[in-house]
Amino acid sequence: MAEMMLQVAGLTAGYGPATVLHGLDFSLAQGDSMALLGRNGAGKSTTIKAIMGMVRREATDLRFEGQSLTRLPPQKIARLGVGYVPEERRIFPELTVAENLEVGRRPARSDAPEWPEKRLYDLFPELHAMRDRRAGRMSGGEQQMLTIARTLAGNPRILLLDEPAEGLAPVVLDRIADTVATLRDEGLTLLIAEQSLGFAAEVASRCVVLESGQIAHEGSMQELAADSALRDRLLSV
């Protein structure tokens, strides 16, 4: 366990008086790619936000590279190398594409690959052409690329993606899935909260399925994709 990159033990979290997550345990090693699956409201996004310190957490042991995250605010967690790609993109609509990337930029670090501007634009050439455009005036797919690029600009060691496939046209979806798969192949650790099984299967090797804030299943993505009875039991609505 000592070499685990992200360790989550007894994660209990919620909003105001409501508790959404009831003691989750899972962990990711360097280079792992894990999907958080589950029906609507199972607690996928909350898990990601709880790791980032954006929702109320209690009775939790959260560790990143051995360091406890439990008492840290979001900006400190981000600075440790935890890259967060939010749900609904949340680009800064009044800023240009280049300025959005500037907000995400962090100093280079020795323990993670560096993402200078050029490399980001190589990954998403579309963005280069729109450098000076206001982000609010881009399409949903372009915004999704921007939000990933913006987080990569911080040279993260792990990427937490919250519903990256949501609301995207199929052709854009493929494009994003390919890119995320490339990042995985380059060795970036991934944790992806996802509704779409197809997308998750393309980018993740392992999965955790949540049900009412608890882990209902944990295993390999292949196994889940092959077992339709299991899928029906865990994910069908």
């Binding site: 605010p73 979001p74 900006q75 949340r90 907000v103 962090r106 987080t151």
Partner: peptide, 13 residues
């Protein structure tokens, strides 16, 4: 950026 979405800016460090 913080004027538009403080929480997001914080999550980016």
């Amino acid at each position: 950026a913080a004027t538009q979405d403080r929480e997001m800016a914080a999550a980016l460090g």
